[in-house]
Design a protein around this nucleic acid. Structure first.
Lengths: 125, 125
DNA sequence: CAGTATCCGTCCGGATACTG
DNA sequence: CAGTATCCGGACGGATACTG
């Protein structure tokens, strides 16, 4: 596939593909939840403990969205006290690859970006 | 690098890396602008014409952010009428790869996601 | 042509309190 | 334990009008 065909994947259909995925996992917590569930089946509280700073409300919302999109399964055990386990689906696991690629890019380029921001801010008072 | 080390790239530092990149290009238009500038030097109006639906204001804001982050160069020609050309920087071009990977994932999995959403919505009235 | 300026509605996300 | 309910501030993004 040529370079042009590749960027067409982004621009295709007026950017619908990118827009769709960013609407799904472009928010503050989704990719973090997915990465945290990689290879592990975790309960609500465990998930919350492993994701510093996330509130109960936002964790609930995030896992609900991920469940609706078919990226995460939510299993309720009929016990007292209640137990709920979250796990990645097969589709959810396939997201890890692209997400890691993006994270690698972020880590590699953060220094350059911050440098650019600093000089931009210096020149634009 | 092991799978675990990979997801650490996402979760590392409390998710700072992912958070940083999504704050940068996780908005509605940034990746679309980057993809549109791939391999082309374009003027403001050309850019706007190739990105259906973007307003003058949002295009201005988006290219300014990308310029500040060092992903795009903005070249002003001292002419009348004014001419401004936008181009990807070397760093900007390196973003295309990971972005395309994400777009590919989006295209491949959109059917599955929409199916999951439909059945979720059916079961949760 | 390539922007700025202004207004404005909506959604996101945090804080807090309450519950099956 | 695993949520829900409510309130709130702020950022995002669209529409419109104006300008060097």
């Amino acid at each position: 596939m040529s370079r042009y065909e590749k960027t067409c994947l982004i621009r295709g259909d007026g950017g619908r593909a990118i827009r769709g995925i960013l609407d799904r996992v472009g928010d503050k917590w989704s990719l973090l939840v997915v990465a945290t569930l990689d290879g592990a089946s975790l309960r609500f509280t465990e998930l919350q403990q492993r994701i510093p700073g996330i509130s109960q409300r936002m964790l609930t919302r995030t896992v609900r969205h991920l469940e609706r999109d078919g990226l995460v399964t939510r299993t309720v055990f009929a016990e007292v006290p209640p137990r709920v386990e979250y796990e990645l689906t097969a589709m959810g696991r396939t997201l890890i690859g692209p997400a890691v690629a993006l994270a690698e890019w972020a880590v590699d380029n953060n220094p350059g970006i911050e440098e650019s921001q600093a000089s931009y801010d210096a020149e634009h008072p």
